[in-house]
Structures are given as structure tokens and as C-alpha cells.
Simulated scan of single mutants.
Amino acid sequence: MNIQELFNIQKILDTKILQEHKLEGEDLVSRKIMALQVELGELANETRCFKYWSKKNPSGKQIILEEYVDCLHFVLSIGLEINFMEVSAEIKMEETTEVDQFLKVFANIADFQRDLSHEMYVTLWGNFILLGAIIGFSWEEINTAYLRKNEINHQRQVEGY
């Protein structure tokens, strides 16, 4: 996966949204952070990893992957918003559970919101990418799903979503 290519693709969508909704020049960082938190919660809900009281299985892999790339759209968009696009595709595997990794990403989002530094963004990025690996996604699956969802997001803008 070429991360710079993903940032470039996201920038095209973000620009379209800004123009369509007349938001040029507005600071959207807080709204993007909140959107990421909401999407991350939706992702956790589909994995059901925290639902110790339930015997119901997680959603299918494609549904979970789509929720993951919804989050990825916002992680990329936040990076673009504050001009932090220098991140690594390397995954530093750790012994952890899905629940612990979700909690770590939620904490990273909160930390980043308080300190909009490049260091905090890189930490958020790395832990988010690790979450995808822990869930079981390959770079190829993420890239393909991101491109597919990006097309849908462009179409949604045309349709007035």
C-alpha cells in the first residue's frame, strides 16, 4: 500500500466535500476527530469483541473491513487537515487483544485532540494500522476496500448524501 497515494486520493474527496458544502477555510479538525471516534465505535460494535455477554458472532469480514476503512478515511483526512502526512506503513506487532487495541486507539484519539502534534498523530496512525492487522486485515484488503469506499463516497457527494 502506498500511503502517500491514499493521502492524495483522500485529498481529492476532502476538496470535493469542502467545495460542495462551502466549508473552505473552516477548521474541521474537531469534527473530524469526533467523526473518527464515532466510526471507531461502529467498527468495535461490528467486531463485537467487547460483548462478553453475547453469543452472537461478529459481523462478516467485509462489513468489518468497510467500517475499518470508514475510520481510515477520517485518519487520513485529519492528517491532511493539519498537514501531517509523513507516516509509516510498518506495523510493530504487539501481543494484545482487540479490546485493548481499540482502547489504545480511543486513548490516542483523545491524546491527539489535546495535543495536535505530529508525534501524537504518528502514534495514533501506528496504533490504528496495528488494529487493522490484529483484526486480521492485510494491506491489500485495506487498500482495495478503501478505494472501493472512496468511489462510494464520491458518488454520495453527487447524490447529495
Rank of each mutant, 00 (worst) to 15 (best):
N153S: 02
K11E: 14
E95V: 01
Q19W: 14
V158R: 15
R114A: 09
L13F: 05
V158H: 14
L116I: 14
R148E: 12
E98H: 07
F128G: 02
W125N: 01
A35V: 04
Q113I: 08
I9D: 02
V122R: 13
E81C: 01
D27I: 12
S88A: 05
N127P: 06
A110M: 09
P58R: 15
N127F: 01
S117E: 10
S77W: 00
L103M: 10
K51W: 04
K92M: 10
R31S: 11
N150H: 04
G41Q: 09
T15P: 00
L6K: 03
E24Y: 05
Y68V: 06
T47P: 10
M34R: 14
N127Y: 09
Y146C: 04
L116E: 14
L13I: 00
K11P: 00
E66T: 13
E42H: 07
F102R: 01
F137R: 05
E151N: 02
V122E: 12
F137A: 00
F112I: 02
T97C: 04
F50Q: 07
G41E: 02
R31G: 12
D100M: 06
W139Y: 08
I91R: 11
C49L: 06
E5P: 07
S117Y: 08
H21W: 02
V99A: 02
V158D: 15
I17Y: 05
I9W: 00
M120H: 14
T15S: 14
V38L: 13
I9K: 07
K11W: 11
L130I: 00
T47R: 08
W53C: 06
K104D: 05
H73W: 01
H21K: 13
K104Y: 10
K56M: 08
N108K: 14
I64L: 08
N127E: 11
A107M: 14
E20I: 11
A35D: 05
L103E: 07
D111R: 12
I135F: 08
L72C: 02
I33M: 06
D115E: 08
V29F: 03
L65N: 08
I134W: 01
M85C: 11
D111A: 12
R48M: 14
E119M: 13
V105H: 03
V122H: 07
V158Q: 15
T96L: 04
S117Q: 05
F112H: 04
F50P: 00
Q4C: 00
Q62I: 15
F128Q: 09
G132V: 14
I78H: 01
E24L: 07
Y52I: 09
T47F: 03
T15N: 14
G79P: 09
S54N: 07
E46R: 11
H118T: 15
F84R: 06
F102L: 03
Q19D: 15
